[in-house]
Amino acid sequence: MTKKNQQQFEQLYQQCFAMVLQMCLGYVKGDHDQANDLSQEVFINIWNALEKFRGDSAHKTWVYRITVNTCLQYLRKEKKKNKLGIDQVVNTLTMEETGVNDQNNALYGAIGQLAELDRLIIMMVLDGQEYDDIAEVMGIQPTNLRVKIHRIKKRLKKILENE
């Protein structure tokens, strides 16, 4: 890796670490250890893809793409490595070091009850991403995405009400 790439990576890491970690936390139902492991995988993939990074203003979308793809591959990979189901560790770990309190834990737990794909979509919505950008990251039609988001919001509301 060239010095320029190294600097670019460090910059991306500092800018996007919180965003990536938060998405990973939601994806693995708030399990801190798995989220850390997963965010490291995301940054390895960012590192490997750095040559393709043009450094334009859309760097957030670029990082989202890698995060989404890494998340979707992660659970399958993890199943191969160990049989520990993530359901077993939901909310059992405190996350003081990342500022996650009980309220946040409940939110991550609720997001974790959604389907894999829905978790990723709703987290980008919570992040305030434009629907068109989310559609681009997922590779689906914006109209289809809008309907999906509406359905996911309803489902999330139902989950939180039942808790």
């Binding site: 670490f17 938060q22 500022g99 996650v100 939110l107 999330l156």
Partner: peptide, 12 residues
């Protein structure tokens, strides 16, 4: 929920 999410982002 969005507020809670974004607050947690700031904490991280």
């Amino acid at each position: 929920l969005q507020g809670l999410w974004q607050q947690n982002r700031k904490d991280i």
